[in-house]
Design a protein around this nucleic acid. Structure first.
Length: 518
RNA sequence: GCCAAAGUAGCUCAGCUGGUAGAGCAGCUGAUUUGUAAUCAGCCGGUCGUAGGUUCGAUUCCUAUCUUUGGCUCCA
């Protein structure tokens, strides 16, 4: 490549008729295929273009729509990034070729900036930070499933409690349902038919069971335990439900794509008239939650009926129409995603953009006229007749695992105080002050501050360095002066020394930032 | 699932063409008793992913398998 760049060869465009172009690509099945695709494409004028890398007929030429830079000399700043297999035109049934990934910039600065960006992304990698901060691990005994360590568990619980705070005041009722259910239920729901290869199976004696991939059938079972009236609707059953899905090997990625995960799930049983307002309310909830974490760039996709589905076309028409009406009520702009809906209903998908500009699909709401019917959900209406409720499946952050992965990368481990696994660490100047340090700790623990004491036989500078590397938000230093006057010296991460204060003052000062439910 | 690469101490990595392994950090012990981003010394630590095979001998070569990484496909 360097030689060709040095020669500064011009790129020359050659335009030929379709027939001649096809002839030129003879002998190369991929080029020939591409030429045929180009001719078949909408807007094709029946000609094909080729570019010669230098002199036509002498140097390398290739089928390409263009445009190109004028000559090879313009391409000085390039870098080969990686090597990977890729399917021909993204089709799994087709051949697989080796693709070389590279990038090219107009100047050296541009390339350097980009390479720095890649390094920055690597520093944020939640798998790396998760290990450094001792949050979780994944091991060979259970690929794609997370072992949450004590510090990670603190974060999981903080996130759950935050979400509880959000949904409690919106009338959701939290439930807990079994993780393993008899296969007969999955046959009735349609999962055994449409979703079979993605479910973990297990036996209870000689009875076939399946580990739940979704929480919906379980919630319908709760709904079905009583005779429901129209007055009970909308009934919003929420669950931090642990689901398992047998994802193909090779698709797993840290916390972002796993086989076992907890959804912030809920199912809203309602009447057709209530769909629009319930969907609209959920849309507000999603935006509010994302906003709390600083994600304000949210995109919405509207996914319609897939090929593999249950239910009649009439029900799908009704479901898609009512979801569309709901987006109007919510004033929601969306892009259409045809054929990508769930097998039981159309859905809205909420995608947020992180600080590196990457998109993450988290929230979803789905309108379902099918499962309640299949699993026999009913309520008595104002007309004293039995009706089948509509079910709205919804999750705001989606999977707790994935959302925490996103947050780890977004904050680079530097979490808001309420989410931080350790909120403060007490550093005694020397072993002489461990007694006082423990006394301070007790006071803080009683005030629900997550705090530890560093009793190691190290100098203060070393201990502070450890705190900074582990992103501990507050450092509380205690020595001679503090022990005598019953004080602590507070150092805030990033901000530095905040001076001495009473423990009670520290508790009061941080109370607001420590509040989980907001 | 597909293509490619990788798997060595808790972590990050080294180990030439086959002769059973090293470093830094972490951990432990001792000295030091420390005032806002690394005090010094010593010690411990590995079935070289797993299972077969070739060989007098395998971390090294071969086969299978599991897992991970980068992509592809998929993600109800």
């Amino acid at each position: 490549m360097k030689e060709i760049i040095k020669e500064d060869r011009p790129f020359t465009r050659i335009e030929v008729s379709g027939a001649e172009g096809l002839k030129r690509t003879d002998g190369d099945k991929y080029k020939h295929d591409n030429a045929e695709r180009a001719l078949a494409r909408e807007g094709s004028d029946g000609t094909l273009s080729f570019y010669a890398n230098g002199e036509p007929g002498k140097n390398w030429e290739d089928l390409c729509a263009g445009p190109h830079v004028p000559s090879t000399g313009k391409l000085k700043c390039f870098k080969i990034l990686s090597l990977a297999g890729a399917y021909w035109h993204g089709d799994q049934a087709s051949d697989q070729l080796t693709r070389v990934y590279g990038t090219c910039f107009a100047d050296k600065d541009g390339l350097e900036t980009y390479v720095k960006f890649l390094e920055e992304a690597e520093k944020r990698d939640h798998r790396r930070i998760g290990k450094e901060m001792d949050l979780y691990h994944i091991e060979d005994h259970s690929p794609g499933m997370v072992f949450w360590h004590p510090k990670g568990t603190v974060m999981v619980n903080a996130l759950k409690n935050y979400i509880r705070g959000k949904i409690d005041r919106r009338g959701y009722l939290e439930v807990i349902t079994p993780e393993i259910l008899n296969k007969t239920l999955w046959i009735k729901s349609g999962h055994a038919d449409k979703y079979n290869e993605n479910m973990f199976k297990t036996m209870a004696g000689d009875v076939e069971m399946a580990v739940k991939p979704m929480n919906c059938p379980g919630h319908i079972q709760i709904f079905n335990t009583g005779l429901r009236s129209w007055r009970d609707l909308p009934m919003r059953l929420a669950e931090f439900g642990k689901c398992h899905r047998y994802e193909p090997a090779g698709t797993m990625h840290g916390l972002m794509r796993v086989r076992g995960f907890v959804q912030d799930d809920a199912h809203i049983f309602c009447t057709e008239e209530q769909i629009a307002s319930e969907v609209a309310d959920f849309c507000h909830l999603v935006k509010e939650i994302y906003h709390d974490f600083g994600f304000d760039d949210v995109k919405v996709k509207f996914s319609t009926r897939p090929a593999k589905r249950v239910g009649s076309d009439e029900l799908w028409d009704k479901a898609e129409t009512s979801l569309e009406d709901a987006t109007k009520l919510a004033g929601l702009a969306y892009t259409l995603n045809p054929g990508e809906g769930a097998f039981y209903g159309p859905k809205l998908e909420f995608t947020l953009k992180d600080s590196l500009g990457r998109d993450w699909q988290c929230g979803t709401i789905q309108v379902d006229f099918n499962l309640p019917q299949r699993l026999g959900a009913e309520y008595v209406g104002k007309d004293n007749q039995k009706h089948i409720p509509v079910m709205l499946h919804r999750a705001a952050v989606g999977s707790i695992e994935r959302f925490l992965g996103i947050l780890i990368e977004e904050f680079m481990g530097d979490f808001p105080l309420w989410l931080a696994p350790v909120q403060a660490r007490i550093l005694p100047i020397s072993e002489k002050f461990t007694g006082y340090a423990n006394k301070v700790k007790e006071q803080l623990v009683n005030a629900d501050v997550r705090v530890e004491v560093d009793n190691s036989n190290e100098k203060l500078g070393y201990k502070i360095r450890q705190c900074e590397l582990q992103k501990v938000p507050y450092i509380l230093i205690v020595g001679e002066k503090e022990a005598t006057d019953n004080l602590i010296s507070v150092r805030k991460r990033k901000d530095g020394d905040m001076g001495q204060m009473k423990v009670e003052d520290f508790i009061a000062k941080t109370a607001d930032d420590r509040k989980v439910v907001r």
